[in-house]
């Protein structure tokens, strides 16, 4: 683990911008970077929902009626989806080298994919079992999935772009606060 992480500091010096535009990163992203960005983004996403919802008074009525075990399960599912996508995404793009347009395209696309996978997971995990034991009809669930999928894709793409901006900002700041060896004074 240590060797892989340390290798991030050693970027291929001669790599041209044109190559970086089209090729996947040569240096694999350290697993700790993937873990940090995916967990940070998931936590910030939930906080971005909870903070304004509570401040507007909407959450106080909803919270007592939520099923705790279900909430934990949904959060874990979201966490796994974001971690998997982030790991795959950082194998395709290099935030330090690639153009903003390329990053935005991939970030938005992965966000849309996350939104769809999250929604379909909820439909399959909650909707189908509910249809089997209650009067809820399968057609209603299929209709919900059909209407919800494009909405989830759009919302996911927007969230993906916002997450990209946050990630680029923290990477930029991290680059400036990282301790570096003093330059040779000879």
């Amino acid at each position: 683990m240590g060797e892989t992480e340390a290798s991030e500091a050693i970027q291929p010096a001669g790599e041209s911008a044109a190559t970086a535009e089209t090729a996947a990163p040569e240096t694999p992203t350290p697993p700790l970077t993937v873990w940090t960005l995916s967990t940070g983004n998931t936590v910030l996403f939930v906080l971005a929902l909870v903070l304004p919802s509570y401040a507007s008074g909407g959450l106080s009525d909803v919270l007592p009626n939520l099923n705790t075990a279900l909430g934990v399960g949904i959060f874990l599912y979201l966490w796994i989806v974001v971690w998997t996508t982030t790991r795959w995404l950082l194998g395709q793009v290099d935030p330090d080298e690639d153009s903003l347009a390329r990053l935005a395209l991939w970030g938005g696309a992965c966000g849309a994919f996350d939104g769809i996978v999250f929604l379909l997971g909820i439909v399959l995990g909650l909707g189908l079992p509910a249809a089997l034991v209650t009067s809820l009809q399968l057609l209603s669930i299929a209709l919900f999935a059909a209407i919800g999928t494009p909405i989830a894709a759009v919302v996911g793409a927007v969230v993906g772009l916002v997450a990209l901006v946050v990630d680029l900002a923290v990477l930029w700041v991290a680059d400036r606060v990282t301790p570096r060896p003093r330059p040779d004074r000879r």
Partner: peptide
């Protein structure tokens, strides 16, 4: 959370030859 993302990424990027 935001500050910790910066901290962790800085820890990951730290060059092992730093004093």
């Amino acid at each position: 959370v935001l500050a910790s993302m910066v901290r962790t990424l800085a820890v990951v990027r730290t060059d092992e030859t730093v004093s």
